[in-house]
Write a protein that binds this DNA or RNA. Sequence first.
DNA 1: ACTTATTTGTGAAGTTTATCACTAGGTATC
DNA 2: GATACCTAGTGATAAACTTCACAAATAAGT
Lengths: 206, 206
Amino acid sequence: MSRSRVPDIVVGRLPIYLRTLHQLEDTGYTFTSSQELGKRIGISSAQIRKDLAHFGEFGKQGTGYEVKYLQEQIAKILNVDQDWSVALVGFGDLGQALSRYSGFARKGFHIDVVFDQDPQKIGKKYHEVTIYDFEELAKIVSSQGIKLAIIAVPGFAAQDVAEKLVEAGVRAILNYAPVKLFVDEGVRVEYIDPIAHLQQMSFYLT
Amino acid sequence: MSRSRVPDIVVGRLPIYLRTLHQLEDTGYTFTSSQELGKRIGISSAQIRKDLAHFGEFGKQGTGYEVKYLQEQIAKILNVDQDWSVALVGFGDLGQALSRYSGFARKGFHIDVVFDQDPQKIGKKYHEVTIYDFEELAKIVSSQGIKLAIIAVPGFAAQDVAEKLVEAGVRAILNYAPVKLFVDEGVRVEYIDPIAHLQQMSFYLT
DNA sequence: ACTTATTTGTGAAGTTTATCACTAGGTATC
DNA sequence: GATACCTAGTGATAAACTTCACAAATAAGT
């Protein structure tokens, strides 16, 4: 299990496998196969087997995979067999929507602190969440040992926020701002950009 | 410009190029180069040149690219030199946040119709948007000739919604539900799944 | 005019990723 | 228990994608 050489693209598929296993579990399956999974995910069975092979052997020939067991194993590999504390930076429309979204907590990602620079918002509570001054970010994030953050600020402010987060000890950032973030090596950044997706799709509209 | 054989992955980078060109323009640049672009985007200059080569020749040796011109050309390639009418299905927390987000319209994607199945919401206006009954989807979408849709319903309902949308003439779907959508060939689907990104990143957290 | 420094576009080479195809092991049925 | 049928794991092969490296073109300075 030399995880250091697992391709990003493989790691990126693990959450999809996990999600699909949960769906199978909810539908009453106790066993499944790479073929079944592949069919539901829209990829080949060989790819699933190859991906899983990076981490060990989880199936049984002739039978396939035990849903619950594979679920637990993938959760452990992804480090989602524990809860994570998440910092959210930016409490505009997007930040508010994210903080209100219960899906994160349901999957073990708890938005425990929220930062904004607007004096009108700071110190107030919105839906159970207290907004802290952006100036206090370093102190709070580092003292709480937070490793995960979500950036939901305007593009021009994102790089600055990212640097402050990293300095405070954050190791992974989910970035909703439409800009590339330059951070220290070892810090992970993932991007969410709906506009880019829409533009990509409109390419194919005749 | 045999667009039929342009790899998806190349098309997926075009919005990033476009975005970066806008940022350069805002900063006062009139000319740029593949090297400059690459540095800002975090990819190699060769890749940018190779990508653009799929669509024609846009630069001048020794000089580089004229920002405005390349911008217009990429916009035309992506079909974003025109406005698009978008249907939004699902007006829960996520759908409401999306409908309130002005970024879509600012980039030419106008959420003109919103659907929900909740009788309490139907017919009411929220922030300038009227909610229609999900039952009217086929009629309204097809009569307005809408080709683009955003799905923001719970996972269990997404496949059904997708099928109704496609039947009504939709050709591209941005799916926020955490499920794979199976649609007719030729219909594009893009996925947005923040949880998957967080899980992917937590893999790297020691 | 000549030299130096850029930069694009692109064939060739290299790397990464996905598929194929097979072996070994397990199940089910008659 | 013999036969037919599945399925995981995996080396080999193929496809996809990225980088390299260079010729041709342009600009700028001396």
